[in-house]
Design a protein around this nucleic acid. Structure first.
Lengths: 102, 102
DNA sequence: TTAACATATGAAAATTATATCATATGTTTT
DNA sequence: AAAACATATGATATAATTTTCATATGTTAA
C-alpha cells in the first residue's frame, strides 16, 4: 500500500496542531495582520510570533507583503480553514455524542 | 474572542499529525484489526503500536473488542477520515498549484 | 546619516512527543 | 494449574517542538 500521501497529510496536521498557529490562521481569515498586531492580539511575544509565522510561511500557508515599516501576513490558501472547520465540527459532534464514559 | 474551540481542534490535529497513527486510522477504515496484525502490517513493534492505539482510544478515535485472545481495534467515528481526506485534497491542490518557488 | 521602529534569526533552554525495553496482566490452550 | 500467547504499562531514553533571550537586519523618519 502506498502511503506517501499520509506523510503529506501528517505534515499539514502538524502545522495545524499548534494552538498559536491555529489562532493566527483563523485571525487571518478575512484580513492581513502585521507581526506586532498578532503579537498583541494573541498576547505572545514578538519573537515567538515571528518564529511561528515563518513556519507557516515556509509551508505556504501564509504569505507576506510590506506596508510602511510593518510586514503584513495573510492567508495564502483560505481552503486550509475548511480543514479547521471539519475538525471543529468533529469535536462538537463528539462532545454532543458523549460516546463513552461520563 | 472565544478560541476554546481551537484548543479542541488542535488536540485533534495533534492526534492526526503522527504518520503511524494516520496509517492506523486509514487501515481501520473498513475493518477491525488486532494489535499484532497492525504491528506486522505497519512494521512497528508491538509496544509502540499499543502505545499509539491507547492514545487514539483515550481520545475516542478508536474502540476495541476482544475476539479470542486478540484485541481488535476499529474506528469509533469514521467521520475522522473526512478530515484526513480534506488534508490530502489540500496537499494535492498545493502541489499542483505550485504557488511559490519551483 | 543617525535614531527609532518592526521583524527576523540563531542558540540555548524548556517542554512535549515518541520509541524502546523490561515486565506485568489477562486469556486461552494443554 | 502451567505454558503459551496477545496486549498493556511504566520507566527511561531519544528526538522533535516551542519558547526565550540576545542581537542582527532592513526600513523609515528625523
Amino acid at each position: 500500500m502506498n502511503t506517501d500521501y499520509l506523510k503529506e497529510a501528517s505534515r499539514i496536521f502538524k502545522l495545524l496542531s499548534n494552538e498559536t498557529r491555529l489562532k493566527m490562521l483563523v485571525n487571518l481569515e478575512d484580513k492581513a495582520i502585521s507581526v506586532n498586531e498578532l503579537s498583541a492580539l494573541l498576547d505572545i511575544e514578538q519573537s515567538a510570533v515571528s518564529h511561528q509565522l515563518s513556519i507557516l510561511k515556509k509551508h505556504q500557508l501564509v504569505d507576506t507583503n510590506r506596508i510602511g515599516k510593518s510586514i503584513y501576513y495573510r492567508l495564502d490558501d483560505p481552503h486550509i480553514l475548511d480543514i479547521v472547520n471539519e475538525a471543529v465540527q468533529h469535536s462538537s459532534h463528539v462532545i454532543r455524542g458523549k460516546k463513552h464514559g461520563e
